[in-house]
Design a binder for these strands. Structure first.
Length: 414
DNA sequence: TCTGTATGGGGAA
DNA sequence: TCCCCCTACAGAT
C-alpha cells in the first residue's frame, strides 16, 4: 500500500507530471480530442496570467499539436472560406508551450471550465466546448508565433540520433563537469528529462547519481549501433575504468539509450491518466521503480532538487548530505530558518521584503473582501460564460478540491 | 494554523 | 549561485 501523501499521488490532483513523455501525451491528447472540431472566435487569456495575449481571431480554425522535449507547439490553422478575401485571411499561428510544474491541456464543456484555466480556445458549435491550458502554479509559459527554444537540445524521444550526437560531440563543455544527475536536467543536452526520469534512468543502470557526468559519458559511441541493429545490448558501453572507479556496474547499458527508451516506456503506458476526469495513475505509479519509492534514498542536489537513488550517492554528492530521511538542507532551507528565527535585517533587500509584504497584505485584504461573495463567486464560476480566471484562480479551495482530496484519501486506502 | 514539499526554468548578481 | 515565480496538498503543532 502506498503511503498517504506519496508524491506521485499528487498528480491525481494536479493533473500530470510534465516531463518529456507528458508533453508528448499532451500533444496526442490535443490531436485526438480536437480532431474534427472547428474552433472560432478569439483566444482568451485569464486576467491573472502574465503570459502574452494571443492575438488570433478567426471565423473557423482547427487545432493540432506536436511536441519536442519539454515543449508543445499548438498550430491554429484557419479553414479557408470563399467569402474571405485573400488578404484578409488569417494566417496560421504557432503557440509554443512549456508546462512548468503543473501545466496540462483539457477539453471540456464551456460551463465546466477547469479552475486555473489560463488560455482558452472555443469551439464554433453550440453549446461551446473549450480546449484550455490549465496551470495551477502558473510556472508554465506560452509564446505566440513561437518556435522551439533555440537553447534546448534535440528531443530525447523523437530526435534520438541528433540528441545523441549533441551530447557525445560536446563532452568538453564545462556543463559536463557536474554530477551526472544534475547534467541530466540540463535541457541544452537532455531536452525532455526531468526529475522522475533522471532517477529512473540512473537507477536502471546502477549509476551513482553524483559521479562526474563526463566519466559516465566518455567512451560512448556517436551512434547507437545496438539500437539500430536491434542486437542485444552489449556491456562495454560504460568505460571499464570509470565503472570501477565510481562503482558503476559494468553491466550498465548505454546511458544515452536509456534517456531515449525509458521516457518512451511512459509514453507507451498511454495517456490513461492524462485527463484528470478519468485520472488513473496506478499504472504510472506501478511503473516507477525508484522515484518516491519506499526504501529508496533521497538527497538534495546542488540546485536543491531531490535526487532519488539506491546505493552509493557518488563522490560529488553534496558534503553535508545525510541519511535518506534527513535530506540535505539547502541554502533555501537555511534562509527560511534564518528568516523565521531572526527579527533583525534579512538577507533579502528591504525593498524586496516590503514588496512581498505589500503583496501579501493585498492578497489578505482581497481574500477578506471576497469572503461574503464566496458563494456568489462559486455560482459564477459554474454558470459564467466567459472564464473569470482571476476570480476563480484566487478563490480558496472549496468543494472541488475537498472532493478531490477525499477521493485521494480513498485512493490511498486501496 | 504553520511548515515543508512538489514534475521547471528565467534572470539578477 | 541564488532568488523568485505560484498553488495546494500532507503532516506537524
Amino acid at each position: 500500500m502506498q503511503k498517504v501523501g506519496r508524491h506521485t499521488d499528487l498528480c491525481y490532483i494536479t493533473g500530470t507530471m510534465p516531463e518529456g513523455p507528458e508533453l508528448h501525451l499532451a500533444s496526442l491528447f490535443v490531436n485526438k480530442t480536437c480532431e474534427g472540431v472547428v474552433f472560432a472566435g478569439s483566444v482568451r487569456k485569464s486576467e491573472v496570467s502574465k503570459n502574452p495575449d494571443v492575438a488570433f481571431t478567426c471565423e473557423a480554425y482547427r487545432i493540432s499539436a506536436i511536441s519536442r522535449g519539454k515543449e508543445v507547439k499548438l498550430t491554429l490553422t484557419p479553414i479557408k472560406s470563399d467569402d474571405t478575401k485573400a488578404e484578409k485571411q488569417q494566417q496560421p499561428l504557432d503557440i509554443v508551450f512549456r508546462f512548468g510544474m503543473s501545466g496540462f491541456f483539457r477539453f471540456t464543456a464551456e460551463d465546466e471550465l477547469p479552475k486555473h484555466a489560463h488560455l482558452c480556445f472555443y469551439s464554433k458549435e453550440q453549446p461551446r466546448r473549450v480546449l484550455s491550458y490549465v496551470d495551477a502554479r502558473r510556472f508554465g509559459s506560452w509564446q505566440p508565433q513561437g518556435t522551439w527554444q533555440p537553447d534546448r537540445g534535440p528531443c530525447i524521444m523523437f530526435e534520438y540520433k541528433s540528441f545523441r550526437e549533441n551530447v557525445v560531440s560536446h563532452l568538453s563543455d564545462r556543463a559536463f563537469d557536474r554530477p551526472i544527475c544534475e547534467v541530466l536536467l540540463n535541457q541544452k543536452y537532455f531536452n525532455g528529462i526531468g526529475n522522475y526520469l533522471r532517477a529512473e534512468i540512473l537507477y536502471r543502470l546502477h549509476i551513482p547519481p553524483f559521479v562526474p557526468a563526463r566519466s559516465v559519458l566518455e567512451g560512448l559511441d556517436l551512434e547507437d549501433f545496438c539500437l539500430e541493429d536491434k542486437k542485444p545490448v552489449k556491456n562495454e558501453l560504460v568505460n571499464k575504468k570509470t565503472a570501477k572507479k565510481f562503482k558503476v556496474k559494468e553491466e550498465s547499458a548505454d546511458l544515452l539509450r536509456l534517456c531515449h527508451t525509458v521516457p518512451l516506456e511512459v509514453v507507451h503506458l498511454g495517456g490513461k491518466g492524462y485527463d484528470p476526469e478519468k485520472a488513473d495513475y496506478s499504472g504510472f505509479n506501478a511503473w516507477l521503480q525508484c522515484y518516491y519509492v519506499d526504501g529508496m534514498k533521497s538527497i538534495r542536489d546542488h540546485n536543491g532538487r531531490t535526487m532519488w537513488f539506491k546505493g552509493d550517492a557518488g563522490p560529488m554528492a553534496p558534503k553535508d548530505s545525510k541519511s535518506p530521511k534527513a535530506k540535505k538542507r539547502t541554502k533555501k532551507d537555511e534562509d527560511h530558518d534564518y528568516n523565521k528565527k531572526k527579527k533583525g535585517p534579512r538577507r533579502q533587500s528591504e525593498s524586496t521584503e516590503k514588496k512581498k509584504t505589500v503583496k501579501k497584505e493585498a492578497r489578505a485584504a482581497k481574500t477578506e473582501k471576497d469572503l461574503p461573495q464566496k458563494e456568489a463567486i462559486r455560482q459564477r464560476t459554474v454558470t459564467q460564460k466567459s472564464g473569470d480566471q482571476e476570480t476563480t484562480d484566487n478563490t480558496e479551495p472549496e468543494e472541488g478540491s475537498r472532493r478531490r482530496s477525499s477521493r485521494l484519501t480513498r485512493q490511498n486506502v486501496r
